[in-house]
Design a protein around this nucleic acid. Structure first.
Lengths: 229, 229
DNA sequence: GCAAAAGTGTTTTCATTACACCCATGT
DNA sequence: ACATGGGTGTAATGAAAACACTTTTGC
């Protein structure tokens, strides 16, 4: 550890809450820490922000290392800075959540981690540092954002069925939604492209595929359409 | 400047967006900086967070210094950390907004400021550092929060009239509201005490005074009442 | 008695909710 | 032919919006 850090013992880091959806449950990407403090425990991936790097840049760097993905939906959540939150010194951390299409990712263990794994959000009971708190705060924020912004699509493949979309909302918000009302609401907003293409490989009537259209969304917004689920 | 700071040139600060309402306009407390960088310019009050101090503690300290107030409504907004946002080195800053009753305050210039003044939010066109951006982000957040949480009262005297409350909402949200509908909505929530006391010193029919009741609010919330304006 | 803001209900409009059956495909 | 999820419309309900006149006080 360089002298000035040893002395001043003050630094800032980013922590990433990387959400993924596998069609059934909401997951978050965790690492198993190799070293102390909290060696062997599950934690959120994160890293110290270097002196010449913007906060988002650092968050994107961690994300790229772990998932190989660029251009990912990223949102700053909150900054956690309790004096004693890190046993080795003063580290305040800025939390970012990101939404990724879980199928696109082939996760690669980073050097600082023994393992990297998708864990079901609902099953997580403890994490290193104050990461459980951070994760819960981020989840609450995701739930809030999901209702008011068209970001759910970030968690799905580019082409998706309305049922898949609905299921995503149900899982994240933890509430059941009415099928007909849900479809009406989404389709009336006019923010989706109806692809003239069907689901395949299912043993029932295949569903129509849709994709989110950013341009349509901007247009709709101009015309006073307010996204809300 | 101590050696390790000179060397590492990395620090974190808090900046406070202190909102006040004078019955007519929304104001924010600004300081005129005494020293460079940005000497002579208006800025948000803030300070470096010491190594042994929590973030909220630092924010409260700045607030106390400037206003003499403790126990103030305080909310973390966002963290600003662009590499070049501070000309003297790397300083990331955590923004907190607070809501205070403007009448309670006798503002005291802090040592680092030439002047401290309430400025109309709408009239502010530039500030030192990235403080304009910070202020605008905080205002947007306040507007959002004001609609969904019973925090408007924090900006008013303990006893207030419904017209005052309505005016506050109109000014902050920048939209007109219907008098009867507004009253209906607020009173139906059952979160106010009707004081059996009237306004005095006005040259028209005096209005009833009300106060916000936290206990009533908690009760209402339990019964499924959702605060929304 | 006039100016100024306080106070008060009803109707209309619109958005949300609740709800059940036929359809297309794979096995 | 049966199992599985896909796809569709209407009526009922409740919340939000629109709207105008009387009341009380100070001057």
């Amino acid at each position: 550890m360089p002298f000035q850090q040893e002395f001043y013992k003050s630094a800032f880091s980013v922590d990433n809450i990387i959400f993924g959806f596998d069609g059934d449950t909401l997951k978050v990407l965790l690492i198993k820490r190799r070293e102390d403090p909290y060696g062997g425990q599950w934690a959120l991936p994160g890293d110290i922000v270097t002196p010449t790097e913007d906060l988002v840049t650092a968050a994107k760097r961690v994300l790229l290392q772990l998932t190989g993905l660029r251009d990912v939906y990223l949102e700053q959540v909150h900054t956690f800075g309790k004096v004693d939150r890190h046993p080795k010194g003063r580290v305040i951390t800025i939390a970012y959540y990101s939404l990724i299409n879980i199928a696109k990712v082939d996760i690669a263990p980073a050097s600082f981690a023994e393992k990297v794994e998708w864990k079901e959000v609902r099953s997580i009971e403890s994490l290193a540092f104050d990461h459980l708190d951070i994760m819960q705060t981020s989840l609450a924020r995701l739930q809030q954002d999901l209702k008011l912004r068209p970001i759910g699509f970030e968690l799905l493949p580019e082409k998706f069925t309305l049922t898949e979309l609905q299921r995503l909302y149900e899982v994240v918000l933890q509430q059941d939604l009415d099928k007909r009302n849900f479809r009406k609401k989404i389709l009336n907003m006019n923010i989706l492209n109806t692809l003239h293409e069907l689901q395949s490989g299912v043993s029932h009537r295949p569903a129509k595929l849709y994709s989110f259209d950013q341009i349509k969304y901007e247009d709709a917004k101009k015309n006073g359409v307010i996204f809300e689920i």
